[in-house]
């Protein structure tokens, strides 16, 4: 008799524990925004706004000295490998934008003096569109783009 009660008690407490854990996981923590993180650029809904927020200017120059390495056709939009490199001297920052994403600004890299202007990451793309590389050197802003065709979007549920 005692044993049975004990079983019931254990079952009950285990279930309660699971509920508490689930509630804890669902809690939304307050957003801690870092000063270095360019909120305006990342929240921008258009490429033009994002470039302006990132660089402080909309005067950009297309450059052949920026290389974007990305697949022409991405089968899986959730994982699109992108590399950006540049032979422009004195690069201080590189940004990657996906033109057709709801928030085009995807990633931004601030480079130190000895850092080589060559970064790689993997991005999500909702649909076919241009991948835009933004390179800041001195007070100039250079851009390049490459179209990536996406067969399965990476921003859906």
């Amino acid at each position: 008799m005692i044993d049975v009660k004990r079983r019931v008690f254990l079952k009950g407490s285990a279930a309660a524990g699971a509920v508490v854990a689930a509630a804890g996981a669902g809690l939304i923590a307050p957003q801690a925004v870092l000063a270095e993180w360019n909120e305006a650029a990342f929240r921008s809904k258009t490429v033009a706004d994002a470039i302006k927020a990132q660089t402080g200017t909309d005067a950009t120059e297309e450059s052949a000295d920026i290389k974007i390495k990305a697949p022409e056709i991405a089968e899986n939009g959730a994982v699109v490998p992108v590399s950006v490199s540049s032979s422009i001297a004195g690069v201080t920052a590189i940004s990657i934008l996906a033109a057709s994403n709801p928030s085009p600004m995807v990633a931004s890299f601030a480079l130190g003096e000895s850092t080589v202007a060559d970064v790689s990451t993997r991005i999500k793309m909702g649909k076919t569109g241009d991948v835009i590389a933004l390179v800041q050197a001195g007070d100039k802003v250079y851009t390049a783009k490459k179209e990536v065709k996406v067969t399965i979007g990476g921003c859906g549920g």
Binding site: A110, T115, T121
Partner: peptide, 12 residues
């Protein structure tokens, strides 16, 4: 040597 800022647009 590098400070990277990312959005949710970077892959899982």
């Amino acid at each position: 040597v590098i400070t990277t800022s990312w959005s949710g647009g970077v892959s899982k």
